[in-house]
Each structure stands twice: as structure tokens, then as C-alpha cells.
């Protein structure tokens, strides 16, 4: 068990013939992900460098491969359309890696997604992760070199996105035989958290990079809800950053619904107000969304807050009474 994706997830890549799409299709395939094809309009009927079939439309790809997840790498002007196409074709797990999608496009996509999901149970909802995110990984135990799809890194894991796979640890390989679920707004900071928890002897059930954009799909609460229900997740590490009020809302949700140990880190404590630090999401304005208010809300919810980014693993261990 894990959340969102596992070894049975069949994945296509939208934008498989672009340079990033091709690179990361290969990366996921070699990790052990069940890559079943890709979509590039106009190149249907051909094969990619990994001998995966390419389709003109997502609908055709789903029909012929049975894909139930997609990894989107199409350029930002076309990302909203790619997400809607995937939804239309019935794909339930949509992971949009593309960075630089216009916010107004996402406002519309999100409205369509919310309408589609209204009244549905957790398992029936369509999940959109991203855009502007590193993706999702459910690690498996290392079984190979990871240098080709014939000799994948793992036979029972799944990686959809751009994160390095080898830093993750499967529970069976972890010294402490305990699993952390990780959810984060930042890509590389997620890798840092994975690395630190792995080094401390912890495994990861699933790591979800929800992305740094102001309007996105999956959020902290969606993730917390699933980690809480997942028997393979023992504790949760939540990495936030300045801007917006999602961390405050998550703290409130944790108080009410999460019984597993939670640790957190908020990036951007020292960012000067009003400066835009790369992520469109990381803007402090109007006294809301600053690191201090977020940290106060987290502490009030009895969440162990890491003082520095070097202490994320340590904070998780403390929350789990392991240190």
C-alpha cells in the first residue's frame, strides 16, 4: 500500500517526444515504473526511443494501453489543455510537471476539476498533482541497476516525475522499519527531506511534490487525508513555504483528523516581504502567509517544526519518538 500510485499504475507521458518528456520517461521507465506509452499529436503510430508506442490523443492511448495515470511535460501554453484532455479521456491520476503555466489557465482547470469531483468519494476523484511540481514516487526495494528498463532499479515501485529515485528507501530496506509519507511544495527541498529521513533509517511510503504555484490541483489536506488512511504510512512530513494559507489550513485539519505523528518545515523565514522568490506561490503579502504565522499555527496543532532545513529528518524522528 501507498498513496496515489504503486507498481500496478500504468503511466503515459504527454509530451513524450519533447526533450524533458523523453528524458524523464526514460528515467521513470528505468526506475521501474510501468510506462506504457506517450502522446504527441501528429506522431501517433510511431515509437519512442524506449520502444514505447506514441499516440495522437490521450483517448487513443488509454484505449490501447489501459493507462490510468499520466505525466505531463507539454510546454506551459498547452498544459491546461493537456490536463483537460487527460480528464476527458478518463485518466484518474494526472501529474503535471510543467513549470510556468499561466495562473488564469489553472483557475479554469481547477473549476472543471472541482465540478468533476463534486460529491465523489476519495477513491473516485480525479487527482491532479501540480503543475510546477517534481511529481510523485512510491519507492520499491532495489532489485537492479536502474540502467535500463530490462534491469530496473525496482520491480515494485513507481516514480512519476523528475525526482531522483535512488535517494528513497523502501520500508523493507530501512533500519527502523518505519515509513514516512512526505508532502511538499518544493521539489529539491523534498529530495533533501527524503535524503535526511533515509539517512536516519526511515523509509518512505509515498512522496508527493504538490508544486509551488498559487492555483494547483492536489493540496496538503488531500494528501494528509490519504496518508492518514494509508496503513503503510506511519508518520507524515509536510514541507511548506511562505505565501498563501495552505499550511495554516493543514494545521487545522491535522488537529481535527490526523492521529499519526506529523513534522513540518516552512521555507522562507528570512525572505524579505514582497519579493518573489522564484515560486509564484512564495509571495508574502498583507501580513498573511508569512513563515512566522505558519509556524505558530503548526506548533499550536502540536506538530514538530524543524528549526532549519537540515533538521527536517531530525524533527520527523522526534515526532515519532525515535530521537
Amino acid at each position: 500500500m501507498a498513496i496515489l500510485i504503486d507498481a500496478n499504475t500504468k503511466v503515459i507521458c504527454q509530451g513524450i517526444t519533447g526533450s524533458f518528456g523523453a528524458l524523464h520517461t526514460r528515467g521513470c521507465y528505468h526506475y521501474g515504473t510501468k510506462m506504457v506509452g506517450g502522446v504527441t499529436p501528429g506522431k501517433g503510430g510511431t515509437k519512442d526511443e524506449n520502444n514505447l508506442p506514441i499516440f495522437n490523443t490521450v483517448a487513443a492511448a488509454v484505449r490501447d494501453t489501459g493507462a490510468d495515470a499520466t505525466m505531463i511535460f507539454v510546454p506551459p501554453p498547452f498544459t491546461a489543455d493537456a490536463i483537460l484532455e487527460a480528464m476527458d479521456a478518463g485518466i484518474k491520476t494526472i501529474i503535471a510537471v510543467t513549470e510556468g503555466v499561466p495562473v488564469q489557465d489553472m483557475v479554469k482547470v481547477r473549476a472543471v476539476l472541482d465540478e468533476n469531483n463534486a460529491g465523489k468519494s476519495v477513491k473516485d476523484r480525479t487527482v491532479l498533482v501540480g503543475p510546477n511540481c517534481p511529481g510523485v514516487i512510491t519507492p520499491g526495494p532495489k532489485t537492479g541497476s536502474g540502467e535500463s528498463a530490462k534491469d530496473p532499479y525496482t520491480k515494485s515501485g513507481c516514480k512519476i516525475g523528475i525526482m531522483p529515485g535512488y535517494i528513497n528507501t523502501h520500508r523493507s530496506e530501512s533500519k527502523l522499519a518505519k515509513n514516512v509519507g512526505i508532502v511538499s511544495r518544493s521539489g529539491t527541498l523534498t529530495y533533501e527531506a527524503v535524503w535526511q529521513t533515509s539517512n536516519l533509517g526511515l523509509g518512505q511510503s509515498t512522496c508527493v511534490g504538490i508544486g509551488g504555484d498559487p492555483v494547483r490541483g492536489f493540496g496538503f489536506i488531500d494528501c494528509l487525508e490519504r496518508f492518514q488512511a494509508d496503513p503503510d504510512t506511519d508518520a507524515i512530513l509536510m514541507i511548506g513555504e511562505i505565501g498563501g494559507t495552505d499550511e495554516e489550513a493543514a494545521a487545522d485539519y491535522i488537529t481535527k483528523h490526523v492521529t499519526k505523528p506529523v513534522a513540518s518545515f516552512i521555507a522562507g523565514r528570512t525572505a524579505p516581504p514582497g519579493k518573489r522568490m522564484g515560486h509564484a506561490g512564495a509571495i508574502i503579502s498583507g501580513g498573511q502567509g508569512g513563515a512566522d504565522t505558519k509556524i505558530a499555527a503548526l506548533k499550536k496543532a502540536n506538530i514538530t517544526v524543524a528549526e532549519t532545513p537540515a533538521d527536517m529528518g531530525g524533527a520527523m524522528a522526534r515526532a515519532m519518538n525515535l530521537a
Binding site: 518544493s186 527541498l189 513555504e241 522562507g268 528570512t270 522564484g278 532549519t308 532545513p309
Partner: peptide, 27 residues
């Protein structure tokens, strides 16, 4: 000089935590 906005902000945070002052944010 850092890769990723979140890690870049976190790097600034830890520099300050150790008593230094960042001269820039660079992702």
C-alpha cells in the same frame, strides 16, 4: 547558488540561522 526555489529559500534560512546574512537568492 542553489537549485530549486524552496531549497534556495531554505538555504538562505539556514545561513541566517547560523548567524550569516544571504547576499542573494539564486535558483
Amino acid at each position: 547558488l542553489v537549485n530549486g526555489a524552496g531549497l534556495a529559500m531554505a538555504t538562505m534560512d539556514i545561513i541566517k540561522h547560523e548567524g550569516g546574512e544571504p547576499a542573494n537568492f539564486l535558483d
